[in-house]
Amino acid sequence: MDYFAQQLINGLVLGSIYGLIAIGYTMVYGIVGMINFAHGDVFMIGGFIALITFLILVSLGLTAIPVILLVVLLVAMAITALYGWTIERIAYRPLRHSFRLAPMLSAIGMSFVLTNYSQVAQGARVKPIPPFITGGYTLHESADGFVIQLSNIQIMVVITTIVLLALFTWLVSRTRLGRDMRACEQDQTMAALLGVDVDRTISMTFVIGAALAAVAGLMYLLYYGLVDFFMGFVAGIKAFTAAVLGGIGSLPGAMLGGLAIGLIETFWSAYFSVEYKDVAAFSILIVVLIFMPTGLLGRPEVEKV
């Protein structure tokens, strides 16, 4: 039981990170109907920018951890958002009215560009940082000595995710920008006729998705204590899977899918084998899609007559 509880905590934390990335996939799919394969690499870029900002702040002699975290968070979000904007501008927008596969191929190309650019610029080796959020709580200690740990960094990841999710839900459901985004999602032509600048709204979607991916990158850096140029690939595929599992296009679905993938992976590693954790996650995706083709929370697409 204690072991189960510990794995539940680990799974939720991992799932939160996947969920944050998955939102970027699902938002872009919702508004432009394409899979942004470069999104996983945007997450990786976010991790690197967080690392670089962190090192700069430390070398400047800053020691107050909350200040460092806040600055790193804001800088990583801002610069990664700029990456998101630029990617859309140069790789997707010129192909928007091209054939359906063109932006997807362009996205795969963009993914390679970002991966290799990071490898060239930052080197191929794993970049570690010393753990600087330490400590935690012992929730329970059983008779045979097994301890359920809840570390501060885990608490931070989950709280940050909840806060961002709340903010983001508010943005989409209550603000002008959110209304415009939903309008563009349903009928771009009509939205344009009502005066909505569709291109700008799509850019903002990429900016927000990238900013959330940057937060995920920072969380990953803090949680695992390292980044490398290839981490965007696997995390991206997992988050994409999460978005599909939850029902692509659905925001709560992306978060739910992220948590599901995180939990499946963690429990499989804990009870069966670590080597086959990805097999387990993807097998469950296949089973879910066979019985629920639109994912857990997705709505079937209604053909427009």
């Binding site: 002008r176 209304r179 415009d180 939903r182 309008a183 939205a191 009502l194 005066g195 909505v196």
Partner: peptide, 9 residues
């Protein structure tokens, strides 16, 4: 909301 989108400008 439909009417609010129309007041975008």
């Amino acid at each position: 909301e439909n009417l609010m989108v129309a007041q975008h400008n």
